[in-house]
Design a protein around this nucleic acid. Sequence first.
DNA 1: CGTGGCTCCTGGCGGC
DNA 2: TGCCGCCAGGAGCCAC
Length: 263
Amino acid sequence: MLPELPDVESFKQYFDKSSLHKKIKTVVVKSKEILGKVSTQEFQDKLRRKKFQSTQRFGKYLFTKTDSNFFVVIHFGMTGNLKYFENLEDEPAHSRILIEFRNGAYLSYDCQRKLGEVDLTETIEEYIEEKNLGPDVLDLDFKKFKKILEKRRGTAKYTLMNQHIMAGIGNIYSDEILFQSEINPKTKIFKLDEQNLNKLFKKMQKVLKTAIDLNANPKIFPKNYLIPNRMKGGKCPKGDVKLERIKVSGRTTYFCPKHQKMK
DNA sequence: CGTGGCTCCTGGCGGC
DNA sequence: TGCCGCCAGGAGCCAC
């Protein structure tokens, strides 16, 4: 699936399990377009002989702290992935950055469409500031959630997906959250009353946490989830109504016309 | 502030 | 059969 908050959380777990506390031997930048501000030279020089000490996820970003007081920031774009492996023949097809550890194993950042980005930062706060990201969705309580929605005039879908308002939700999970909340994606956010907002907040937390628990794997999602049916001709999991496919905020959006009526 | 359109990118697929 | 062009969607930019 596409790298939204639950997917990045599972990348974090994968990274932690495979790549922490191992000394880096070499770094190969195979597609320099993937790098943000940092040059290939600096990226390689700074990482050589270092170790990753810990990781932190914020929104759709994964921050990996090195033992030298800087972070590697990984953004997965649409097609980013991580793979740890022992033999070079197992290197993925679109390996963009390849880290070789001193134990002989490798970590590859694979990204077919090159829409992802890898960069360095001194602090997480600095990076968040620079990208102007809103708070991480899972750090919100209901009070803060209501606060950041005040004075917003956009649609529910746009508001959930806008990383400057809140960080972590993308096109796929916004559809799921709105489906579970029984809110039409085109509903203006200010049209929702206290009760609607409360339901939206609770379902948002529930959907994201459930997806994290299930390793962001739609194949094992609950039976009443929209995501596994999110395709042309897909049906509402609560009945046999056909899902509708429209554009909201320029993004392909699936919703159930029966359960997500306009308020 | 929000919307819609364009851009980046690659591979899969539909249509002719 | 083969090839063109659309589409997927994360995110930035720009005009309105």
